[in-house]
Simulated assay, not measured.
Amino acid sequence: MQVNSDFSRTAALKTCQYQWVQSTQPGVERAMLDRIGKERARATSIVRYHPGSLFPTHTHPGGEEIFVLSGAFSDQSGDYPQGWYLRNPPGSYHAPFSREGTTIFVKLWQMQPTDKHVVRINTNDPASWTMKNGRSVCHLYRDRIESTSLQKLTENEKLFSAGYPLVPSELLVLSGSVIYNDIEYIEGSWLRLAKPDLQSVTAGNSGTTVYLKVGEFQNVSHEGSM
């Protein structure tokens, strides 16, 4: 299966454009944002667990990255309500479930094989945030390939400021909205920018918070899982 699989091209989806499909497990649906492969795929998705739904124990040979958008996500390592960031390295395994229901942002098989980092960050904790160049930032992960963070933008603020490395970038709108090519993308929208420029993305009139990943992560393309 190929969904937005040409990483030389920009892809952008509003929430109203998401197409929800049933996963292999009852009560778990997903909206595919980009995907290369079949059931075991390099994939970026929004995944929705209905209350009481689960996945059996499975491994993630290429790693898994999760951001909890609503409800509470759980596995054998604990319970993670809205705002938690989880990073499970290649070779990890778990049996995820949700008692009350949850919606999560998931990236599969997009880590380096040598990555061994297990990350758990509560982005609701003020201590997780710092000020960088006048902007509130929550750093989630960084290595030689990628930099991942949450960023809070004020009204009409440009996402990419002068001096910002203009490399491929991906963002998920967590609150408020962003304007890209004169189109407004509200909360829940996803954009993958192949060649961003300094003028390409600005916050909406009420400001915004975005998940932002920048780097050469698009070059990782293996068969994954889930």
Results as ranks from 00 to 15, higher is better:
Arg144Phe: 14
Thr208Trp: 03
Arg142Cys: 12
Asn181Trp: 10
Tyr180Trp: 14
Ser175His: 08
Leu191Lys: 07
Ile145Glu: 15
Gln218Lys: 09
Asp182Trp: 12
Lys213Val: 05
Glu157Arg: 02
Asn181Glu: 15
Trp190Gln: 07
Thr202Ile: 14
Phe160Asn: 02
Ile179Glu: 11
Val201Cys: 08
Gly207Cys: 06
Gln199Tyr: 14
Leu198Tyr: 11
Met131Pro: 03
Ile186Gly: 12
Cys138Phe: 02
Asn205Ile: 13
Ser189His: 08
Ile145Cys: 15
Gln151Met: 03
Asn156Leu: 12
Ala203Cys: 04
Met131Asp: 15
Leu171Trp: 02
Asn181Gln: 15
Gly176Leu: 11
Glu155Arg: 12
Pro168Phe: 01
Leu172Cys: 10
Trp190Lys: 07
Gly176Glu: 09
Ser136Met: 12
Thr202Glu: 14
Leu193Cys: 10
Phe217Ala: 12
Ser189Asn: 11
Glu184Pro: 09
Asp182Lys: 14
Val137Leu: 06
Ser169Ala: 09
Val214Cys: 08
Ser189Thr: 11
Glu146Cys: 12
Arg142Gln: 15
Val137Ala: 03
Glu157Trp: 06
Gly176Arg: 07
Gly188Met: 10
Lys158Gln: 13
Gly188Arg: 07
Leu172Trp: 04
Val220Asn: 12
Asp197Ala: 03
Tyr185Arg: 05
Val178Gln: 06
Ser206Met: 06
Glu157Lys: 02
Ser147Asn: 15
Lys132Gly: 02
Gly215Val: 06
Val178Asn: 00
Leu159Glu: 00
Tyr211Ile: 00
Met131Tyr: 11
Tyr164Ile: 00
Gly204Cys: 06
Asn156Gly: 07
Ile183Asp: 15
Lys158Asn: 08
Pro168Thr: 04
Leu198Gly: 09
Ser189Trp: 06
Glu216Trp: 11
Ser177Ile: 04
Phe160Gln: 10
Val220Gly: 09
Leu150Tyr: 00
Leu171Thr: 02
Leu150Pro: 00
Leu159Phe: 01
Arg135Thr: 06
Pro196Tyr: 01
Asn219Pro: 02
Tyr211Gly: 00
Gly207Met: 02
Tyr185Cys: 03
Ala203Ile: 03
Leu153Asn: 00
Ser147Arg: 08
Thr148Pro: 02
Thr208Pro: 04
Tyr164Thr: 04
Thr202Tyr: 07
Thr202Leu: 10
Gln151Arg: 05
Asp182Ser: 15
Leu140Val: 03
Gln199Thr: 14
Pro165Ser: 04
Arg142Trp: 07
His139Val: 01
Val220Tyr: 12
Gly134Asn: 11
Thr154Pro: 05
Ser189Lys: 06
Ser169Thr: 04
Lys195Phe: 09
Leu159Arg: 00
Asn156Ser: 10
Asn181Tyr: 11
Leu174Phe: 05
Ser169Val: 05
Phe160Met: 11
Ile186Asn: 13
Phe217Gln: 12
Leu171Glu: 07
Arg192Phe: 08
Val173Glu: 00
Asn156Ile: 10
Asp197Met: 05
Thr209Gly: 05
Asn205Asp: 14
Leu212Ile: 09
Lys132Asn: 12
Gly204Ile: 03
Leu153His: 01
Ser169Arg: 00
Leu166Arg: 00
Asp182Thr: 15
Arg144Met: 13
Ser169Lys: 02
Glu170Asn: 04
Lys152Ile: 11
Pro168Gly: 05
Thr208Met: 11
Gln199Glu: 15
Pro165Ala: 07
Lys195Cys: 07
Gly163Asn: 05
Leu172Asn: 01
Thr208Tyr: 03
Thr209Pro: 10
His139Leu: 08
Leu171Asn: 01
Ile145Met: 15
